[in-house]
Design a binder for these strands. Structure first.
Length: 228
DNA sequence: ACCCAGGTGGCCC
DNA sequence: GGGCCACATGGG
């Protein structure tokens, strides 16, 4: 781990992958829905579910709050854990309807931490999902930590702590405090993770190969260099 | 036939 | 606070 300067890493990832421009969606509510659907699920499967919801005219707060649960389950089936996710989505939509009359501008126009606590109190919204919603749907400057982030921290020797809060603080202390940067960084980390930082590392072409501990520590036997 | 994905909640200690 | 398990589809 030679290059541990975070902005250096950020720039390398940006050069390699290009701007990600996350989160892809037509509305902020679609981002909230996607954040639930993508839990422990590939985006490909989520896209199918999102398209189904749009086709069934369920991609809006009011309709989702009223949706028939069986129909909702069938509609999002491809995203996995569909029974849990259906009831949680419906519950979240109902909450937004009853408390904010379905107006997300009102919902987001408050202190970030207050919104975060409220999100965390809803079933199906944990820390990562709450922060994804705050950042990408609400435009709040808060850094999203996911499984890849923790793993990358280990392999690059960045943040020593492994719990969510500490890793989040680590990044927020070092990155410019801007939603734009936080969003791009998280998206780049996910991109890096998908290609090079799975449990079983795939080294070829990793833009951060030089910095990765797998490289220096021969956790790899092959002659191939490792990666992150 | 495995293993895993842009996690979460419930339970246990 | 951490460790383990169920939750479920679809792709490699």
């Amino acid at each position: 781990m030679i290059e541990s300067d975070i902005m250096n890493i950020y720039q390398k990832l940006l050069d390699h992958f290009g701007k990600r421009n996350w989160w892809p969606a037509e509305t902020s509510f679609e981002i909230m829905v996607g954040a639930i659907l993508t839990q422990q699920t590939t985006w490909k499967n989520v896209e199918r579910a999102i398209n189904n919801l749009k086709r069934e005219n369920l991609m809006n707060i009011d309709a989702l709050a009223k949706a028939d649960i069986s129909k909702l389950e069938r509609t999002i089936r491809s995203s996995g854990f569909f029974r849990q996710k259906a009831s949680r989505l419906k519950n979240i939509a109902s909450h937004l309807m009853s408390e904010y009359n379905g107006d997300l501008n009102v919902f987001f126009d408050r202190d970030t931490n207050e919104i975060r606590e409220e999100l965390l109190a809803l079933k199906g919204i944990g820390q990562e999902t709450a922060d994804s919603i705050l950042l990408y749907a609400g435009g709040k400057p808060i850094f999203v930590v996911d499984g890849y982030t923790i793993r990358i921290c280990e392999r690059l020797g960045l943040c020593a702590e492994k719990n969510y809060d500490e890793v989040q603080k680590w990044f927020m202390k070092r990155l410019p405090k801007a939603a734009e940067v936080y969003g791009e960084m998280h998206a780049l980390i996910v991109e890096l993770g998908k290609h090079h930082c799975k449990a079983e590392p795939k080294c070829n072409g990793c833009p951060l190969m030089e910095s990765c501990s797998f490289h220096s520590k021969n956790n790899h036997q092959t002659e191939l260099q490792s990666t992150i």
